[in-house]
Design a protein around this nucleic acid. Structure first.
Lengths: 167, 167
DNA sequence: AGGCAACAATATACATACGAACAATATAAA
DNA sequence: TTTATATTGTTCGTATGTATATTGTTGCCT
């Protein structure tokens, strides 16, 4: 089933590039909705799961990440992380810790409860993802990733930091 | 530059499928941010532009679409359309019209002001999109679209309507 | 030291998403 | 025809996203 069939689109996607862009955004939208449904029974959102995954796998020796680090990794505004961590702290999934070297900085860490929940959900979600992506064979997935990277590199940095401020 | 380099991701994307999925969502996120920057000078959002494009190009003879039709085409909850149309009505871009055959239904139409704005913005946006998607050659774009469609068809319908409620 | 720019987190106002519950209307079933 | 069910739009509460302004902290430069 094509995008046109699904959405009744014809003229607005006359340009191939426009169609590709729409297709990407619609696919991402559906993926996130699917993820939302998956996580709901755990009183969790895809964003919160993503944050916990970063804390578990990306926090190096320190076992924690600052809010700015999280916002960069998640490609969202710093201001977002404040309320996100607020909610997750209330839910007992993460905790703010003062950074020893810089009093401006909060180090966000997983709580025991957060770790336990992640332990349970992570393998289930991995299976869910594999099920969805099984629509593409391995080499195709690699090609998809390569193409998406090409597009991203053509957009430039997401947080407004210009890549090469010419002159 | 790879996703790992940009985001410092290593372990959470150990699974190829997971990496492909993340790459898609991050790319879409950046595309939408880029679009947001583009539309801001027009006091417009990407979502509002999208809605106007649907009204202009998809509304058939009636020259208007119901809110449920819009929500289906935009893959969002119909509750969303209420406030979206509210804002756009306030901005004078669209208008609610009673449907002649069904008193439950609003037909949303572009106002003259909306049409004029679209006339001005649409060609500029088309150039913007072409610039971004020029990262991929035509056959690559087609392949990308085909792969995304495969994934979408593996997810099922977006609005909770099950495709084949087996027995 | 003292001043000043950069930075981290927060606060605010807004736009967009969701699900759930509701009233009014339309339609199918009895 | 009357009753049951489905659909449309709205409202509510909540989660996420943006840009912008503010506060406190750091660090650099004179």
């Amino acid at each position: 089933m094509t995008l046109e069939d699904e959405l009744g689109l014809q003229k607005p996607v006359a340009l191939l590039g426009h169609k590709a862009l729409l297709s990407m955004c619609y696919t991402a939208s559906r993926l996130r909705k699917k993820a939302g449904e998956f996580f709901r029974p755990f009183t969790l959102t895809d964003v919160q799961f993503n944050l916990m995954m970063l804390l578990k796998h990306q926090s190096g020796n320190k076992k924690g990440l600052s809010q700015v680090q999280l916002s960069n990794m998640m490609l969202v505004n710093r201001a977002n992380i404040t309320s996100l961590v607020d909610r997750m702290e209330t839910a007992g999934l993460v905790a703010r810790t003062p950074a020893p070297s810089d009093r401006r900085t909060n180090i966000i860490k997983l709580t025991t409860r957060g770790k336990k929940l992640l332990e349970r959900v992570e393998p289930m979600y991995a299976r869910e993802v594999e099920g969805i992506m099984a629509a593409l064979k391995e080499p195709e997935q690699k090609k998809l990733i390569a193409m998406l990277e090409k597009i991203r590199s053509n957009i430039g940095d997401s947080n407004g930091k210009k890549k090469a401020p010419k002159t």
